[in-house]
Design a binder for these strands. Structure first.
Length: 270
DNA sequence: CTAAGGACCTGTCGGC
DNA sequence: TGCCGACAGGTCCTTA
């Protein structure tokens, strides 16, 4: 489920319930995630006060006094805040037990998610080579020109490369290219500066609109299922093969680029 | 350095 | 109804 808007929506949903609380325990029910969860991670975290919940790319960083818990939702992960006696479902792999009795529960059928410990003053290797945040200073057409210069790969694949910009997943890569009028197979290094400006703007607008929509669907992290709705109706091309392009009516096409399904309008995107 | 393909996992869906 | 292959929102790692 998680693209950047959902990770950010999740962050905003859980932070108020976590910040200021103390960790009573960390239950690792199944350590077999993308990387095995370190056996000593519970000992490191237990007893510490949570100061904030941040995000870098699609990693959530639960800030503690001596370091951070770094959590990735992978392809199928989700978080809920649940009361103490909430029955477990299959694939509920982790519980962060808070001093108010609530639990932050991590659910992940495919187990592509991960949990790492990052000590204060150290940088985790998984974060070391990441490109800029799409919604912060440093990401614009000028950056794209530098990052994509000389690249022969399809622009859609390049846009999903985390060293170019973080957080643009398969859905929003298609959506941003549609908004910018750029064909997904166009070679990344052969796009004019003006069109790269448009592309950077499209990435920003599509992600921030999705975050805004996600915020409205996320009402109550207690009790509810905690899953923000997925804003299919607001997507222009993703998952809409054969449906009319919202710009010109031409049927939306689907093809595989870099092993991922891609959607585009053959008329509006060049 | 870049690009391409495989790998990790489970669940769901469509076709026969 | 049952089985089988294709596919799913991520991304690291290996190989060329």
């Amino acid at each position: 489920m998680p693209e950047l808007p959902e990770v950010e929506t999740t962050r905003r949903g859980v932070e108020p319930h976590l910040a200021g609380r103390r960790i009573a325990a960390l239950n690792v029910r199944d350590p077999r995630l993308r990387w095995p969860v370190a056996p000593d991670i519970a000992d490191r975290a237990e007893g510490q006060r949570i100061t904030a919940v941040d995000r870098r790319a699609k990693y959530l960083l639960i800030r503690l006094e001596t370091g951070s818990l770094m959590l990735h939702l992978g392809m199928s992960g989700s978080l809920r805040i649940v009361p103490a006696e909430t029955p477990l479902r299959t694939h509920d792999h982790l519980d962060l037990i808070l001093d108010d009795g609530h639990r932050l529960r991590f659910h992940d059928p495919r187990r592509f998610g991960s949990l790492h410990w990052v000590a204060h003053g150290t940088e985790h290797p998984l974060l070391a080579r990441l490109g800029p945040e799409p919604l912060e200073e440093g990401f614009d057409g000028a950056w794209l020109r530098r990052a994509l210069a000389g690249r022969r790969a399809a622009v859609k694949a390049a846009l999903m490369d985390a060293s170019v910009v973080v957080g643009v997943g398969n859905i929003y890569a298609s959506e941003a290219l549609f908004r910018a009028g750029i064909h997904p197979t166009r070679r990344a290094g052969r796009i004019s500066r003006q069109r790269l400006d448009r592309l950077a703007d499209a990435v920003k607008s599509v992600l921030s609109e999705a975050i805004a929509a996600g915020g409205t669907t996320l009402r109550d992290f207690y009790g509810g299922d905690g899953q923000p709705g997925y804003f299919r109706q607001s997507l222009s091309v993703y998952g809409r093969a054969g449906e009319p392009c919202p710009g010109c009516g031409e049927p939306v096409r689907q093809r595989v680029i870099g092993q991922r399904s891609s959607y585009y309008c053959p008329r509006c995107q060049r």
